[in-house]
Write a protein that binds this DNA or RNA. Structure first.
Length: 695
RNA sequence: GGGCGAGUAGCUCAAUUGGAUAGAGCACCGGCCUUCUAAGCCGGGGGUUGUGGGUUCGAUUCCCGCCUCGCCUACCA
């Protein structure tokens, strides 16, 4: 559980608000009445007919109090003071306490406003590191999952009022870049000038070219193991930063990073800063971390055994094992540092614990004006923001690296930075694999064994995989065909641009939702058929609900804002009232009373259950957001958005708004659509999915 | 061998972290376009939650054993 597990809003709306209020009230009562302190679980009952929320505390208390749960529930029910926002309560089953909300008060609160979040109380800056693609080949679907997860989590944190810095680490000096350098130099016999020319040629898909070259080099090593010497030479040259090979590496890495930034921007993904490994080396970040680790005895020099001459971290530091075999080499016997070592230095910098900083220069400016900075080893005169110095760090890295992430956290602990180690969070997720069927479509040869599996791992080294840009292109082609078939965007002068825009919005919506609807620790078995589907539980389904609502307002010649204003004027002034105030006013038969009583009639009764269900869910945004953040699981919001869209679709078919004859009811139905629209758009925005005007 | 994760409908996945009759989507079958767009809606069949025990009022969820699968377990990154 992360450092954000506890609530960080000072004010919450609707569902979350009332859920908390109930939990607190019951907990306080239990403490006074029985002297027992316990966490009270409040959750919706299995079926709506039992009410909106249920409390199961009576069961837990039964043993301690030596009373039947039903008796305890009865005591709680009869003696507890009323809870604001709760209309009634009853006992069910063996001791469930079921609560029914004051629907009008809930509805008034939902109408009244936006989610209001205050800046979280001094939790400090949160750093989220994601994407981190080796700059030696095109991005593939595995990278898309990483970036979409990371980006969505960033959007959620920002929506909750946190200050967030997005880092995309660039390993521009590693073996993967070295292998492409070897390919260009030894296999292709290209000079750095020639490669620079290819990289600058707009007709050349440089990242695709390197994708193939990387695969070629890898297979060349397999047939000619002596060629691994080339890799070693390239690595040395790159690390030293001089000579033709270093120049090649520089050109390749920079060009590929540019490709990645563009690819990610197609999905709406932006970064604040690109810390690069070359600067970690040149600015001696590792040397500083090395001294610290030696000083504080986090690592030691192995005298004998297989790791003789290496600086190692004892396995006991990051696992239960005391076996020496689990020791992790940090510095090789030839004096060079491993990846994990550099990662420890980088992690220290993120927390501001290294006592050093990078220099920076602008890498590019995004269309929205945001500047993307890159690390440099010397001052460039630009006024860069203060990067690093985070109070919490989320590393979005696939679960295969959990062992290495444990070592990094252990490094912080070994240095005595216990708090930072605790706030060093591995935001892990499972890999994206391919279904055998998709492999066949891609022309990938599979063994008989693999054909029987439900999925096959992507292997970048072999060039096996689905490139992100190819997938996006394919999605856009598919959505464009649908858009054309429907003549969405009209046939006028701007039709072409309009259609392309809508096709892109839907394609990206489909892609991002596809990545987000699955929980993190589930392997995604990527299948073209599923990914190219726009029906059922997909992004486009939710976007379609949005478009339908917009069409209602367009056809009705009004707007959501007008509808809400009309509603407020018709039934009283709702603006500026918060939940507790609304409930209070309702009780006092004050200014809000007419609204509340009208709402009550519209939101209750057998015939209105589906509408109430829609309102109830529409008010759950802040609760779901909090859940996503405390569990680091964006999938909950994806599910919420889908369910809300589903309830709206149901509502849409049962209630025809524009032909409603009762003007008051029509206003209410329009307000229902307006609130749903607001909540759908808000949820989609956090998922990084745009809400199209037409479909 | 050790570590981590997974096993739920034919398929792909959920299940608000121990709650009430385990839910969605896809696929399949049957209905619904003269209506605010059918990228939609309604209905139907589909389950011994891998397996055996345990914990308790209550287990898909927690504990132990076993079976199957994946990943990790480099002086690669």
């Amino acid at each position: 559980m992360g450092p954000l597990a506890s609530g960080c809003y000072t004010r919450l709306l609707v569902f979350h608000h009332i859920e908390q209020r109930i939990a607190q009230s019951v907990a306080a009562y239990l403490k006074i009445r029985y002297g027992i302190e316990t966490e009270v679980v409040v959750e919706p009952p299995k079926e709506p007919r039992f009410g909106e929320l249920g409390v199961t505390s009576a069961f837990g208390l039964a043993r301690q109090l030596r009373k039947a749960p039903r008796v305890i529930a009865a005591e709680i029910l009869s003696e507890m003071p009323p809870i604001e926002g709760v209309a009634s309560a009853e006992i069910a089953g063996n001791g469930y306490i079921n609560l029914r909300l004051d629907r009008a008060a809930y509805g008034a609160a939902l109408l009244a406003g936006d989610l209001q979040t205050a800046a979280p109380a001094s939790t400090g800056k949160i750093i989220v590191e994601h994407t981190n693609i080796n700059p030696n080949k095109a991005a593939h679907i595995g990278h898309v999952r990483n970036a979409v997860l990371g980006d969505t989590f960033v959007r959620m944190l920002r929506a909750a009022g946190h200050e967030v810095e997005v880092q995309n680490y660039i390993d521009n000096t590693g073996v993967q870049v070295a292998d492409v350098v070897v390919g260009f130099h030894h296999l292709e016999h290209k000079t750095s000038e020639q490669v620079a020319g290819m990289a600058a040629d707009p007709a050349c898909r440089f990242d695709y070219l390197c994708w193939d070259l990387y695969a070629r080099t890898s297979s060349y090593y397999k047939d000619n193991p002596e060629a691994l010497e080339w890799r070693k030479q390239a690595l040395h040259a790159i690390e030293a930063g001089v000579g033709e090979l270093a120049e090649l590496a520089h050109i390749v890495a920079d060009a590929i990073v540019s490709c990645h930034i563009k690819t990610m921007l197609r999905m709406g993904i932006e970064y604040d800063v690109l810390p690069r490994e070359s600067e970690i080396l040149h600015l001696q970040f590792w040397a500083t971390a090395f001294e610290l680790l030696k000083e504080r005895k986090g690592i030691y020099l192995e005298a004998e055994g297989k790791n003789a001459g290496c600086w190692v971290m004892p396995g006991s530091a990051f696992s239960d094992s005391t076996d020496e075999d689990t020791n992790k080499v940090i510095v090789r016997s030839n004096g060079t540092v491993t990846y994990v070592g550099k990662d420890i230095a980088y992690q220290l910098w993120k927390f501001g614990l290294l006592g050093k900083d990078f220099h920076y220069r602008p890498w590019t400016s995004y269309p929205d004006g945001r500047v993307l900075w890159v690390s440099t080893d010397r001052p460039s005169g630009g006024a860069a923001p203060k990067f690093g110095r985070g109070s919490s760090v989320y590393n979005v890295i696939d679960s295969r690296q959990s062992y290495l992430q444990d070592v990094v956290a252990a490094g912080l602990r070994a240095l005595g930075f216990l708090e930072q180690a605790g706030h060093s969070i591995h935001f892990s997720y499972e890999m994206v694999a391919l279904t055998p069927r998709t492999c066949v479509e891609l022309g990938i040869q599979l063994s008989e064994e693999d054909q029987k599996r439900s999925y096959v791992e992507v292997a970048g080294r072999k060039g096996v995989g689905v490139k992100a840009d190819d997938l996006i292109d394919k999605l856009i082609a598919a959505t464009r065909a649908e858009v054309d078939a429907r003549q969405t965007g009209g046939t006028g002068e701007n039709a072409e641009a309009e259609r392309q825009k809508i096709a892109r919005q839907i394609a990206i919506g489909a892609l991002r939702y596809f990545m987000l609807k699955v929980t993190r620790n589930s392997v995604i078995a990527f299948d073209f058929k599923d990914a190219l589907s726009f029906e059922g539980e997909t992004g486009p389904y939710i976007q379609y609900a949005v478009v339908r609502i917009r069409n209602i307002f367009r056809k009705g010649d009004t707007t959501p804002d007008e509808a809400l204003t009309d509603f407020a004027q018709q039934f009283g002034d709702l603006k500026g009232h918060d939940f507790s105030r609304a409930a209070e006013m309702a009780k006092d038969e004050g200014a809000l009373a007419p609204v509340v009583s009208n709402l009550a009639s519209y939101l209750s009764g057998e015939a209105n259950e589906d509408i109430w269900s829609l309102w109830l869910r529409a008010g759950r945004f802040s609760q779901v957001l909090e859940q996503c953040i405390s569990t680091s699981e964006p999938a909950h919001l994806a599910k919420h958005a889908f369910q809300l869209a589903q309830e709206f679709a149901n509502f849409y078919h049962r209630h025809h708004i524009l032909t409603e004859e009762d003007p008051a009811r029509k206003t209410f139905l329009l307000a229902t659509a307006a609130v749903t629209l607001r909540e759908l758009v808000r949820a989609l925005a956090l998922l990084g999915i745009e809400s199209p005007e037409a479909m």
